[in-house]
Amino acid sequence: MTKIITSNDVHLYYGKKEALHGINLDFEEHQITALIGPSGCGKSTYLRCLNRMNDLIKGVTITGSIKLENDDIYASQMDVVNLRKRVGMVFQQPNPFPFSIYENVAYGLRLAGEKDKHVLDERVETSLKQAAIWDEVKDHLYENALAFSGGQQQRICVARVLAVQPEVILLDEPTSALDPISSAKIEDTLMNIRHQYTVIIVTHNMQQASRISDKTAFLLNGDLVEFSKTEKMFIHPDDEKTSDYLNGKFG
């Protein structure tokens, strides 16, 4: 397996407070990796290091190294805009642009310079199909995306990311604001795309992690406690804390 992201001794500080205490995590290509752990354990914080979304927060310092293939993403010559084209993200709250569905999905491509209507049409359709929402919205492509339900909006957001064909897709608790049926559809989508994309998902839902992920990382208080194949972790965790968390003794 090829490693697509390698991170080494990642420390993150909010001002003086250390939120991540040296995380070493590698992600393999075309697999789904789940990051689990109780609230405040640093899993979302770590995820947002991978496409430098933490840059937007004031007072954050990050040390250690994170590499996307061979490029150090925190190197000064790294083009953040280009990095984020390669590493897409879906957020906890569905956040479609206040445009039509078609525009939402086509927007990234348009800005990347794609003008050919046929290419755009085709990519919009493919992406919406991959995101398992095409049938619901194919007759409403030119309506405002904000007029749809939360679950539909979230799948539109997934389609929006898929349309620009990143190498890695980060999902930050993508289903925690959704009902179970919508959540299941998002999971279907992830299963659909697992062979073309590297997916890293932060989730509160342990069943979700066990259903869809190939590997799981368990974080606690800013430390990586355990990282292994999902089956192994859920059946025979190495660490007692992992076992306690998975059995609902805390968190």
Binding site: L56, V81, K85, F97, L111, C157, V164
Partner: peptide, 20 residues
């Protein structure tokens, strides 16, 4: 969230502001 959506899609800051 809208700004994050734009930036995470690989838009520059300026494009996020003017376009979204």
């Amino acid at each position: 969230l809208q700004r994050e959506a734009g930036l995470s899609l690989g838009l520059s800051r300026w494009k996020t502001i003017t376009g979204i």
